[in-house]
Computed example of a mutant assay.
Amino acid sequence: MFIMVKLNLAMLEDINDDMDFCLKLAKEESVITLPGIAVGLKNWLRVTFAIESCFLQEVLGRVKAFCQRHAKKQ
């Protein structure tokens, strides 16, 4: 199971595109996603969620923390 998610780069600092997002997410949070550019969709992510719900909650918490750290300051 997977879902495609559109990145809103206007809300993120120091993230250039989907590839940059995926590389930094993997490095900082050990979460692997597929950049959309790999399937022809620039600035989208493919997120696979065929795991137990307890693991999914942990992973989504890591993604949330990553996005909060990289959010543009208002």
Rank of each mutant, 00 (worst) to 15 (best):
L7C: 05
E52R: 13
L7S: 08
V47W: 11
E28C: 05
D14L: 09
E28M: 12
L7H: 09
A38W: 11
Q57D: 08
K73Y: 04
M19P: 00
F21R: 06
A50M: 08
M4A: 05
G36M: 07
R62K: 15
M11N: 10
M1E: 02
V31H: 06
W44G: 00
N43K: 09
F55D: 04
I32A: 05
A26S: 10
L34Q: 07
K42G: 03
E28R: 13
Q74G: 13
R62H: 08
A50H: 09
I15D: 09
S53D: 15
N16I: 00
R46T: 06
A10P: 00
A26D: 07
N43F: 15
A71C: 12
L25W: 14
I37V: 14
V39N: 04
M19V: 15
L45N: 03
L60N: 05
C67H: 01
C67M: 15
L56R: 14
S53M: 12
L41A: 10
A50T: 03
Q57E: 11
C22Q: 03
V39W: 07
I15Y: 08
N16P: 00
C54K: 15
L23D: 09
E29W: 03
L41Q: 12
E28V: 11
K27R: 14
T48V: 08
L23R: 14
A26H: 14
E52A: 13
